[in-house]
Amino acid sequence: MIYLMCFILFSIGIYCILVKKNLIKIIIGIGIAGYAVNLFFILVGYRAQGRAPILAQDQVIQNMVDPLPQALILTNIVIGLAVTVLIVAIAIRIYEKYGTFDITKIRRLRG
């Protein structure tokens, strides 16, 4: 059930990418889809009544959550930021050249 809600969040991002005509809206759609994917990985690795995967002094912790998806997503978050910055830079150059964020007009101007 909770997986399905995560997929709904992902499909909102996909809808935004496919339907909207504004470049900033498309960047926002990519960001929302990325958030949903990050959340899905962590949801898969969660263990019921789990503890964070950090050892404590003088006690033995039995049920830790899965550290492997957390490590993968930790790199993915920073990569997502870098990719977002790259797309924003390209969008600013497009605005500088054409004076608009509307992708249909950009295609027409290109000829």
């Binding site: 900033i24 960047i27 926002i28 960001g31 990050n38 962590i42 949801l43 969660y46 789990g50 503890r51 964070a52 995967p53 950090i54 959550v65 957390q70 997503i73 930790l74 978050i77 920073v78 997502g80 930021l81 977002t84 910055v85 924003v88 969008a91 600013i92």
Partner: peptide, 24 residues
């Protein structure tokens, strides 16, 4: 979901992302 490393990173990254998007 017991992932404190990710919570710190996501918080900082989100603020930077917000600043850059507002700049755009």
């Amino acid at each position: 979901l017991k992932a404190p490393d990710l919570a710190i990173t996501q918080l900082a990254v989100e603020i930077l992302c917000l600043i850059i998007l507002i700049r755009a």
